[in-house]
Computed example of a mutant assay.
Amino acid sequence: MSTQKKTGIFAGGVLFGTAGIKILASDDAKKFYANCTAAVLRAKSCVMKVVTSVQENAEDIYAEAQQINKERAAKTAVVEDEDTEETAETAEDFTEE
Rank of each mutant, 00 (worst) to 15 (best):
A43D: 05
R72T: 15
Q66W: 14
K5G: 13
N35V: 12
A58H: 04
A25S: 06
S45W: 06
N35Y: 04
E86R: 10
G8H: 04
V51G: 14
A91Y: 15
A63Y: 00
R72H: 08
V51K: 15
K44E: 12
T37N: 02
S2K: 08
A19P: 00
D83F: 08
A58I: 14
N69E: 13
S53C: 04
A74L: 08
S45R: 14
V54D: 00
I9V: 09
T18E: 04
F94C: 00
D83N: 08
K70N: 08
Y62L: 07
E56F: 12
T52C: 15
G13H: 02
T37F: 14
F94W: 14
G17W: 00
I9W: 02
T52A: 11
A73P: 13
F10Y: 05
S53M: 13
E80D: 11
T87R: 15
T87V: 09
Y62G: 07
A34H: 05
D81P: 13
K30Q: 10
A25M: 07
V40N: 06
C46T: 14
D83L: 02
A43K: 12
A91G: 05
A91H: 07
N35G: 03
G17H: 10
V47N: 12
V78R: 08
A65T: 01
K70S: 15
T90D: 15
M1P: 00
E86D: 07
Q67I: 11
T76N: 09
N69Y: 11
K31N: 12
G17C: 14
M1I: 04
F94N: 01
A91V: 02
E59C: 10
G20E: 02
V51Q: 15
E89F: 08
T37E: 08
A39G: 07
